[in-house]
Amino acid sequence: MNVFRLAGDMTHLSSILVLLLKIHTIKSCAGISLKTQELYALVFITRYLDIFDRFTSIYNFLMKLIFLGSSLSIVWYMRRHKAVHRSYDKDQDTFRYQFIVLPCLLLALVINHKLTFKEVMWTFSLYLEAVAILPQLVLLQRTRNIDNLTGQYVFLLGAYRALYLLNWVYRYFTEPGFVRWITWIAGLVQTLLYADFFYYYILSWKNNVKLELPA
C-alpha cells in the first residue's frame, strides 16, 4: 500500500460520499446517470466475487463491503425512493447498456489471464469500469446546469483514476516483476475518458463560472 493507492481509494470513497450526500440530504439525483450507477454496481459485484474466499487484508475486505453496499444503495435510491426517483433525468439518460456490457464481456472472454468463471468476471469488471462513466458523461453534456455536487462527483472519480495510474507507476519501480497489462490498459483508457471533462472542470473553476460542457 503506497500513498497514491491510499489517496486513490480515499478519493473514490469521497466521490461516493458526495453522491450519497446529494441523494440522501437533498433527495435529488438530478444530473446523475442511473445507467452509470447500475454499471458500477455490476462492476463491484463481478469484481468482488472472491470477497469471502480470498482474504488479503481487513482494509480491502471493508472497502469491498463499502463499495458494494454504497453502489447498491445508490441504485436502490434512484429506482425506488419516490422523491429521488422523481428528480432523475430519465429521458436524457439514454445510453444503451448493451453497447457497453456486451463488448466488455466478449473482450473478457478473449483477453484474460485464465479462462475460468471468476477470472473472466474479474477481467470483465475491469473493462466495464473503464467505460461505465460514458452514460454519465453523455448526460453531463446534455445537462445545461451541472450542479456543484454532480461536478465534484465526476471530478473525484476522475482524480481517483489518475491516482491509481500514479500508484501503478510507483509499484512498477518499487516491486520487481510488477506488470499488469490488462489492469493498466483498462485503467489508462478509463482515465483518458475524463480528460475532456477535466479540462472544462478546471477551466470553470479557474474562471469561477458554472460548469457547462460544450455540446
Partner: peptide
C-alpha cells in the same frame, strides 16, 4: 508469480 497476487487492489 501467481495471477492471484494481482488482486490486492480494489
Amino acid at each position: 508469480k501467481p495471477m492471484e497476487s494481482f488482486k490486492d487492489e480494489l
